[in-house]
């Protein structure tokens, strides 16, 4: 038993007695001195750095946030669901008006949903927009290319619109009578309901009419009457118009025997 005890490093009696013996505590003045020294040393290197780093971090955060908010408020308003919104007629007219003068952006032209949204649903709206565009452009300017597409529905007010458009033709075309314009417009409207090829033909005829040909379409239906019209033009001194009419006549009746004689 004694040998066993001598080989042990832990003796309960010794440990217990020592625990009862060792009750001293570090004096307060020593504690205060050490803690004061630790506080002084701890602040010198690290806390001073934090003293300016924290306000600087706050200032930077607030500054960046304000800049971000200002940037966001300056951005243009984007309407992501334009296609799903029912556009009022006035707004649609204005939009079509702008479309007539500007090229449609590629992104919009490639998006069928967007095109449907901007497609004219009412010809009255379209006509109103057309008139407003002419009013803004002034009486001296030639109107833009016809904006009624082949696929659009016919409109009973189209002849009147055509007449309004013809008012802006230059003075040298003033001799074109109102009947021929109405005739062309009526044919054009009829063609709009027919196939695309027919529509293109009517469009070409309308183009010919508006680009300086003086003889009405009804006169052009027969070679003899057309030549008579050309002859009247020459007699009245309108040589340029007669020449352009004759060129058109030759294209339409290339095999007419008396063409050269009447020239």
């Amino acid at each position: 038993m004694s040998n066993e005890r001598k080989n042990r490093v832990d003796d309960p009696l010794v440990a217990d007695t020592y625990t009862a013996l060792a009750q001293e505590r570090a004096p307060d003045h020593l504690n205060k001195r050490v803690l004061r020294m630790a506080a002084r040393e701890g602040r010198t290197r690290y806390s001073r750095a934090r003293a300016w780093m924290r306000p600087a971090a706050w200032a930077a955060t607030i500054g960046l946030s304000l800049a971000l908010v200002l940037e966001l408020t300056r951005l243009p308003q984007i309407e992501p669901e334009t296609a799903n919104i029912t556009v009022p007629k006035k707004e649609l007219a204005d939009k079509n008006d702008n479309d007539a003068k500007q090229t449609v952006p590629a992104a919009e032209s490639q998006d069928p949903v967007s095109m449907d949204a901007f497609a004219p649903k009412d010809m009255a709206v379209l006509r109103e927009a057309d008139e407003r565009a002419r009013a803004q452009a002034g009486p001296d300017q030639v109107p833009a290319t016809p904006r009624v597409d082949a696929g659009t529905a016919p409109d009973e007010d189209a002849p009147a619109r055509r007449v309004t458009a013809d008012e802006n033709i230059p003075a040298k075309n003033a001799t074109v009578d109102r009947d021929s314009a109405e005739h062309v417009s009526a044919k054009r409207l009829a063609a709009e309901t027919a196939s695309g090829a027919a529509s293109l033909a009517v469009a070409a005829e309308e183009k010919a009419l508006t680009s300086g040909f003086a003889c009405p379409a009804k006169v052009r239906e027969s070679a003899e009457s057309w030549l008579a019209c050309i002859k009247q033009l020459r007699e009245s001194g309108q040589e340029d118009l007669a020449d352009s009419e004759y060129d058109e006549f030759q294209r339409n009746f290339p095999n007419f025997a008396d063409a050269d004689a009447d020239k």
Binding site: A22, E24, R25, A26, L30, N31, V34, L35, A38, A39, G42, R43, Y46, S47, R50
Partner: peptide, 27 residues
Amino acid sequence: RYKDGDIKAFETLYRRHNDPLYRYLLR
């Protein structure tokens, strides 16, 4: 934490070890 400037952390650490260390050195 004291290394990062937390003085209270050092105080806690000190209170945990001051008396045993003092007795060790005293004896």
